[in-house]
């Protein structure tokens, strides 16, 4: 038990490092140290989890080979790609890494759904599905944003009746998720929701022009934060919750600030291409 309390203390320290780091990141003189501080908090939280975490049955973390293998691969790939990317290509790199975080949240939900048993409360299922939906939207949206900024995707597509289509898509994701949680928990249905969420992310970003992309990336960034926070609820994990929600709320405010800096409103950026009788679609 005492080991568990040490882990709580480490998570508390990690959360404080995130908050102070974020604060320092918003001042020009302290920004770089703020980034280091947040990274230190993350390292603490990760190491603490690997060596001290116990699940509800009191089992410690196993599969060390897989975990360290995965971390090694991720570190090498992440480090090299972050170091090699050109300064002008930074925003799409951020988008790509954001997409990876979203995909990570989605995968966690997919695995956790497999662990469900007959008497799992519906709200827990809803938490799992929420992580899956938001993570997948963030993943596919970020990949499209990356492709646009990298000029792999050069055109701005707009389907006929795009806004009606996205509303229908959103409503069916919502409806199916509720049915899944309170009605029938089937894996096939989960994968349908997964596919619809990926499609939603693509449709969400496709009509938005290249110049507005940083705003969209910032918005998707806060989505991934919220997805991480749902993971925090799922595992009763305080540092995932604070880290995720901090990014969720700070990211949303940052998105609005970025819009203001361009003298535009957020609705204008997101739905801008819907108005004007298609004149804005390129």
């Amino acid at each position: 038990m005492i080991q568990q309390y040490w882990l709580y203390l480490i998570y508390l320290l990690g959360s404080v490092f995130f908050i102070v780091g974020l604060k320092m990141l918003s001042g020009p003189k302290t920004a770089r140290n703020g980034n280091f501080l947040a990274a230190a908090g993350m390292t603490l939280a990760i190491l603490g989890t690997i060596f001290m975490h116990k699940n509800e049955e009191g089992e410690s973390i196993g599969n060390y080979g897989w975990i360290f293998g995965g971390i090694a691969i991720g570190t090498v790939l992440g480090w090299i790609s972050a170091k090699k990317v050109k300064m002008t290509a930074m925003p799409q790199m951020v988008s790509l890494f954001n997409g990876m975080g979203g995909a990570c949240a989605a995968l966690i939900s997919l695995v956790e759904f497999g662990h469900l048993h007959g008497d799992t409360p519906p709200v827990t299922i809803l938490t799992i599905v929420a992580g899956l939906v938001i993570g997948s939207v963030s993943f596919s949206g970020s990949i499209i944003a990356y492709a646009k900024l990298q000029e792999i995707l050069k055109k701005t597509f707009k389907l006929p009746a795009q806004n009606i289509l996205t509303i229908i898509l959103m409503a069916s994701i919502l409806g199916l998720s509720i049915y899944l949680a309170f009605g029938h928990a089937s894996t096939a249905l989960l994968y349908v929701i997964f596919a619809l969420s990926l499609a939603y992310g693509i449709l969400f970003v496709l009509p938005i022009g290249g110049a507005d992309m940083p705003v969209v990336i910032s918005l998707l960034n806060s989505f991934t934060g919220v997805a991480a926070a749902f993971g925090g609820f799922l595992y009763d994990n305080q540092v995932m919750l604070t880290g995720g929600i901090l990014v969720g709320s700070a990211g949303t405010l940052l998105t609005i600030l970025m819009c203001n800096a361009m003298n535009r409103s957020l609705t204008n950026v997101i739905f801008g291409s819907f108005g004007g009788g298609g004149a804005a679609a390129g």
Partner: peptide
């Protein structure tokens, strides 16, 4: 500082990796 802050926040939500470690472990 908008873009660096966005990028820093992006790294912080990487805390989702803790969920991945728990799933894997």
């Amino acid at each position: 500082l908008h873009t660096p802050l966005m990028s820093g926040a992006n790294a912080i939500h990487g805390v989702v990796i803790i969920g991945a470690i728990i799933v894997m472990g």
